[in-house]
């Protein structure tokens, strides 16, 4: 009875010391720190390629994108965060052709499911790595993805 009482005390105190050993060992090993100093390391901070920061529409050097304005992304978006404003262009042959006027993207509604990027038939959309999206005004989260004066890439149907 008394023996088990004393044994219990020693055993208990022993387990406490092993626990303190873990924390103390980290205390004296400052190189195990994992904190990243965020605003300072902005330059080195590189997001991985696949990171889903926002939906973007890549443009090439001639300010051309590959969005045909088919509207599949708009249909596939579960949150209604993509709106397409289309127009009809008349090409050289005199045919009317559908093209985008504005590809509106509501970042505030987007849940990064990736369906628009995946289903786009002409690979016009891609995920961007930008992650600092904080703004003071909600309306700033609504973006127009196609750049001013951009045109459809040649050969994309």
């Amino acid at each position: 009875m008394l023996f088990s009482y004393i044994k219990g005390i020693f055993k208990g105190v022993g387990t406490l010391f092993t626990g303190m050993g873990v924390t103390t060992s980290y205390f004296f090993r400052p190189w195990t720190k994992v904190t990243q100093k965020y605003p300072e390391n902005r330059k080195e901070l590189k997001m991985v390629e696949a990171f889903k920061g926002e939906v973007t529409m890549p443009h090439n050097a001639n300010n051309e994108h590959s969005c045909t304005g088919c509207g599949i992304c708009e249909i596939n978006c579960p949150n209604g965060s993509i709106e397409l404003v289309t127009m009809f262009l008349v090409n050289e042959d005199g045919k009317k052709k559908k093209a985008i006027d504005k590809h509106i993207y509501h970042l505030g509604m987007c849940s990064m499911c990736g369906l628009c990027v995946k289903t786009c038939p002409s690979n016009a959309l891609a995920f961007g790595n930008e992650f600092e999206h904080a703004v003071f005004d909600r309306t700033k989260l609504t973006k127009v993805l196609n750049k001013e004066g951009s045109t459809l890439k040649k050969g994309v149907e």
């Binding site: 055993k11 208990g12 105190v13 387990t15 406490l16 092993t18 626990g19 050993g21 873990v22 924390t23």
Partner: peptide, 8 residues
Amino acid sequence: RLLTGNVI
């Protein structure tokens, strides 16, 4: 060591 064995 830190938690499972700890008597408390």
